[in-house]
Design a protein around this nucleic acid. Structure first.
Length: 424
DNA sequence: TCTGGGGTCCTAGGACCC
DNA sequence: TCTGGGGTCCTAGGACCC
């Protein structure tokens, strides 16, 4: 019997208002009520604005060098970002939300979804009020709350709530339709710039108009992601609350440089720093990575001759050990570095992340191991330890790999202990 | 002179394999 | 050895999110 057909549930999206600016205000009450902007690294551009700063018309992402005079004239306070503080505040907010006992998904540094049971609209409102009050009391931060039948609708309600006292609920078809008619497609979660520009050409401007479009047409032009968004807007949930993952899919450490970097040495040092940051993040997750990319780029704002490139490589072993990662990052950097350019940005991306133990076993035990990776691993070991140890381990050759060389195909070896593993 | 950083997911097309 | 169709894997790049 399909009595397991799950009960109806609602979604709430809790979103901190002007998060970074609000965090600063909590710790420095003199900033409350003032036009305030938070700046990115190198104080490059605006990444958060207080309500008052927004009212003065300063745009998200505004570059400081263009607006500095203007900011001074308007007496807007600009301060550098403090991500350690924001991370800590985020943690407190999430902990507060978890005290309500609903399944919770932390969506970003300042947002979380809750799954609610089926309630009346009034009960939803009451609950939202309670959540707002508690978060404000426990953390000092103001939040907006949207409640809807799906995550996308909760997001939409949140947008509306921000402009209407902080809370918006829509769970009946009439209210939903009414609200979606007021919401621009470009403000729908999942519809970005490219999507809304495309829809504009077909005179589709509101979320309501978008959800009325034909499935096949949406899928053809906006892919499955677009279709999922439309289905969610019609009230059918197809994005569930995601369970917490053990580790990230990828880890990035990158920076823009305050001033242009031209030499390999400088770039090498920067990349070594990124390697350290990324490796630490990896270890904090008790994970290791098998794939590494390094990228460098000149300024994207200088027209004409720029240069940017990425080099990727499979690590011989899954690792989270800084010297290993640093060593390979430098190799990758060497492959793409070109003399004569003014580099403005660089970074490292670690991917193919798994738990340490799992990955170590995979390398030798698991038939699902990718061939390319195995060959790479063997070549590297052969290089590092000499062919002898390889032959020693090379029992039980998988026949399907025969076309390669017999010296590097022993995946299903029974004496893998003989191979010295690089320490993680 | 000066323009953020960190993510996820999807697709197209080539490589490869049976 | 030749043949082609079809599946799967892999990667680059784009779109989107905060």
């Amino acid at each position: 019997m399909s009595s397991t057909k799950h009960k109806k549930s609602y979604f709430a999206l809790i979103d901190c208002n002007n998060f970074f600016a609000s965090c600063e205000q909590v710790f420095n009450p003199k900033l409350i009520g003032k036009p305030l902007v938070i700046l990115s690294s190198n104080d490059g551009c605006v990444i958060s604005r207080s309500k008052e700063a927004k009212a003065l018309g300063i745009k998200m992402g505004a570059p400081l060098f263009e607006y500095r005079r203007w900011l001074e004239e308007k007496r807007i306070i600009a301060i550098s970002s403090n991500f350690a503080l924001y991370g800590d505040m985020s943690h407190r907010v999430m902990q507060t939300l978890e005290t309500f006992g609903f399944p919770t998904e932390i969506y970003s540094i300042d947002e979380a979804f809750l799954t609610l049971p089926e309630l009346s609209a009034l009960e939803c409102e009451e609950l939202a009020k309670e959540v707002r009050k508690k978060v404000k009391k426990w953390t000092g931060l103001p939040v907006a709350i949207g409640i809807g039948l799906t995550k996308t609708l909760a997001k939409a309600e949140n947008e509306i709530g921000k402009k209407a006292g902080g809370i918006s609920v829509a769970i009946d078809p009439e209210t939903i339709a009414l609200h979606l008619k007021q919401l621009l497609v470009s403000d729908v979660w999942g519809i970005g710039r490219a999507g809304s520009e495309f829809l504009q050409k077909y005179q589709i401007q509101t979320a309501f108009q978008f959800r009325e479009c034909e499935d096949g047409w949406i899928k053809k032009h906006l892919t499955v992601g677009g279709l999922r968004t439309a289905i969610e807007l019609r009230g059918t949930a197809c994005l569930d609350i995601l369970p917490e993952r053990e580790h990230s899919q990828s880890i990035t450490a990158s920076r823009s440089f305050g001033r242009a970097v031209t030499t390999f040495l400088e770039l090498k040092e920067a990349v070594a720093t990124f390697a350290g940051i990324a490796a630490k993040k990896l270890r904090d997750q008790k994970a290791s990575a098998s794939f590494l990319s390094v990228f460098i780029a000149t300024s994207r704002f200088v027209p004409g001759e720029g240069y940017s490139n990425t080099a990727s490589l499979l690590l011989p072993f899954p690792t989270s050990y800084t010297p290993d990662i640093s060593f390979h990052a430098e190799k990758a950097l060497k492959a793409i570095f070109k003399e004569g350019f003014a580099y403005k940005k660089a970074g490292i991306i670690l991917s193919q992340i798994g738990s340490e133990i799992e990955e170590q076993l995979n390398l030798w035990d698991d038939g699902s191991l990718k061939k390319q990776r195995a060959i790479y691993a063997f070549d590297t070991i052969a290089h590092k330890y000499g062919r002898k140890s390889l032959f020693f381990a090379a029992e039980g050759i998988d026949k399907s790999w025969k076309s390669r060389s017999s010296s590097r195909s022993p995946l299903f070896t029974t004496s893998w202990e003989e191979i010295p593993l690089v320490k993680i």
